[in-house]
Design a protein around this nucleic acid. Structure first.
Lengths: 245, 245
DNA sequence: ATGCTGGCGACGGTCGACAATCTGCAGTCG
DNA sequence: CGACTGCAGATTGTCGACCGTCGCCAGCAT
């Protein structure tokens, strides 16, 4: 009160400020989301409310809310009176996801450039931090870590545009893309190549080269989608059809 | 079975195929959504689960699910242990919504043009149908009808791109935009002008003029956002701040 | 007079139980 | 022998009730 500083802050008690401020349903939702994204749940697998509830030793109500959240995030699909099951992605789903990502990322990048040199520099700095984490993950070698860092980079790009609604829409697409990637254990073409590709994006952004940046993002996503839709390395060049898993 | 035609279809019973296939929570959600969109609920108004439940003579469970859906659609905001309240839009919210709409609509338009002359023609036809409805609404004169028809036109544009995820993301933005428009009973600058502006979009689309189309969409949305954020006609030219309602 | 503390009312979060619905299989009729 | 009908099991949809938490306000101490 007296100096604009809370008494909690000056007495060093701020560390216990957050004592589990999450509802049960949110925790369940986040845990399940992570399991789906990391591919620990098979596509099409039925998730019975009762089973999850007694597995977690909670009532069905919070489980139900959690499942509903994930349905709205398009990670689960619900059938009336038949419960929910883990989403199954077709090749056209993947194209949709990456096309939508392209829409949001390109617009975000364009808006950052519109923001002037200062905004460009700030965004580039933030992206460099994400890129460092990505390169660390690449060196470490864990698939899940790499893909997560990859998507974090792109999320950072969208976040830098400062439009929370764009970021919200992107987070849904990001989760779906991660689920796709992690389900088919595709080795990234080359870890270093992945880092380089993202580095190119940062350079174009920092330089303010709009057209080059937009094309780089678009190409980057198109290539990624291609790898996901023709993964078996010898399955031929069938573009659209083919169900994954 | 025998000829690929269901016996239901050939016996003319298809009309009763859908007999109220909606869950209670979905009906509640849609009704509330409509009320919020049409501005029948004041911004910031508290919505107590108990009150709604006994008002509709149902249990709290389906009401709770409906409210959660609307929270995820960003039409309600939830505070822990304090229930939900109708969303309040600030001027920066409006800019966010219209910026995000611009991202999705421009990308959709671009993809339609990518689809070639056939796709352009189909999309233009669909949009002309929406434009007819809009002009009818304009002649009829009801504000709510006009704004709804306006958004339907843009939704048709996004739908024509054939990306369901893009369409889903757009529907959330569309609802928010409608809520903004209907809350402040802005008379559209001129009904005919509104129709003309959309007609220009169709022409550019049919002609396949990508750059002109993208610019037209962007300008169209920017102008609309400007009208929403400086509505009082004498409130000065303060761009960003200012809380609506 | 001002700030803290305790009680009070209200609301959401969670729970266990009942009812409606769907799926699969067995039984039966043509 | 095939197809329709009815039953059984399981799961979801819905309900009423309890408990913890939050915001407000009166009362008290300073």
């Amino acid at each position: 009160m007296t100096e604009g500083e809370s008494i909690v802050a000056v007495s060093g008690l701020s560390k216990l400020k957050t004592l589990e401020r999450k509802s049960t349903s949110d925790r369940i939702s986040e845990d399940l989301r992570q399991m789906i994204i990391e591919g620990q749940l098979r596509p099409g697998e039925q998730l019975a409310e009762t089973r999850i509830a007694e597995l977690l030793d909670v009532s069905r109500a919070p489980v139900r809310e959690a499942l509903q959240q994930l349905v709205q995030q398009k990670l689960l699909v619900a059938s009336r009176n038949r419960g929910v099951s883990v989403v199954t992605f077709t090749a056209s789903d993947i194209w949709e996801i990456y096309d939508a990502r392209c829409a949001i990322e390109c617009h975000a990048a364009s808006r950052i450039i519109d923001g002037g040199p200062g905004a460009r520099a700030r965004a580039a700095d933030a992206l460099r931090v994400s890129l460092d984490k990505l390169s660390v993950a690449v060196r470490h070698g864990a698939h899940r870590k790499i893909s997560a860092a990859d998507l974090d980079f792109h999320t950072a790009l969208v976040t830098a545009a400062g439009n929370s609604r764009l970021a919200d829409a992107y987070s849904i697409l990001s989760a779906q893309a991660l689920a796709c990637i992690n389900r088919l254990e595709i080795a990234v073409p080359s870890g270093d190549e992945l880092v380089d590709e993202h580095g190119v994006l940062i350079d174009a952004l920092a330089a303010g080269e709009r057209e080059a940046l937009l094309k780089a993002i678009s190409d980057h996503l198109t290539v990624a989608a291609s790898h996901l839709t023709a993964p078996q390395s010898q399955a031929g060049t069938n573009g659209k059809p083919g169900r994954l898993h």
